[in-house]
Amino acid sequence: MSIAWQLLRRAAVALLLFAAMACLTFLAVEALPGDACTSLLGRAATENKLEQCREENGLNEPVVARMVDWGCGAVQGDLGYSIKRDAPVTEIIAPRLRNSLVLAGVAGLLAFPAAVVLGLYSAQRRGSRRAKLLDTASLVMMTLPEFVTAAVLWLVFSIWLPILPAVAVLPSDATIGEILPTIWLPAITLAVMVFAHVMRSMRSSVVATSARPFVEAARYRGLPERAVLLRHVLPAALPPAVNVMAVTAAWLLTGTFVVEVVFNFPGLGRLAVDAISDRDTALILALTLFGLAVFILSSFISDTITRLLDPRVRAGVGA
């Protein structure tokens, strides 16, 4: 079976999975107590007003009919209408999605290359004082809660050396140029944690690979250490680290609400928290599905990279 066919098949499976999860999410939101109308009307709700609101917004239709209706819309890029915010969901999400992507991108760029290089270094020099220091530091970075990291960063960069703004006071549709100066502190906070996770997985993967016989064999062939590391160890050690990177990349896009709240950053995370407390069903649905798509996509990408690194799969010999 060719690699293209394998990928196509996996893409189809991913799509199917996504559709199934979408239905499940729709039903789960439906099962929440209350609906968009109770939340919109709040205390002013009377039986009559509620009935009227539901009628206007089509909430009296059967669940399945609404689900199909919503699904058809979603396929055409229409994610529904937020009754509470009185705007199409896509319009609410778009600018914040851009902000979140920029934030995740900056954090990823700060964390991933450094993590791979230092992971390799720490595995190579294990036992040395610097490697031990790096390991301890990464352990601390991994366990530090985001708000503590944030507080330390404020202290250093906003109070002692006032070079970066502590919080963003920007509307969600500010231009990227306006956002960039405020992005550094939240991005560093996220990068700290991501770096620690990726570095540690890289390190343990390199250590495990270095113990395999083909590495020793290459060394006894007289290859310089650099060649052994780059040509023989690295390609075999990357797949597990790539998997961790994919998962953390997905987390950067979906799990950042604490950081966003702390720094008042106008991203998707904060929107999700607000949407849930507002019972804004259309928005909750759209955001949940976005998160789902991110996770499915990232695992698909990491799977593809892993397969491409393995000649057995490349050649199409089962897997």
């Binding site: 016989p213 083909f214 590495v215 020793e216 064999a217 006894y220 062939r221 007289g222 023989h232 000649p311």
Partner: peptide, 24 residues
């Protein structure tokens, strides 16, 4: 290191994955 393979060459066990799997 410069003498490895030139003065003394080692032939490791074949069955124990002594060839690097991702290199032809």
């Amino acid at each position: 290191r410069a003498l490895l393979g030139k003065v003394v060459a080692m032939v490791p066990q074949g069955v124990a994955l002594s060839l690097t799997p991702h290199r032809d």
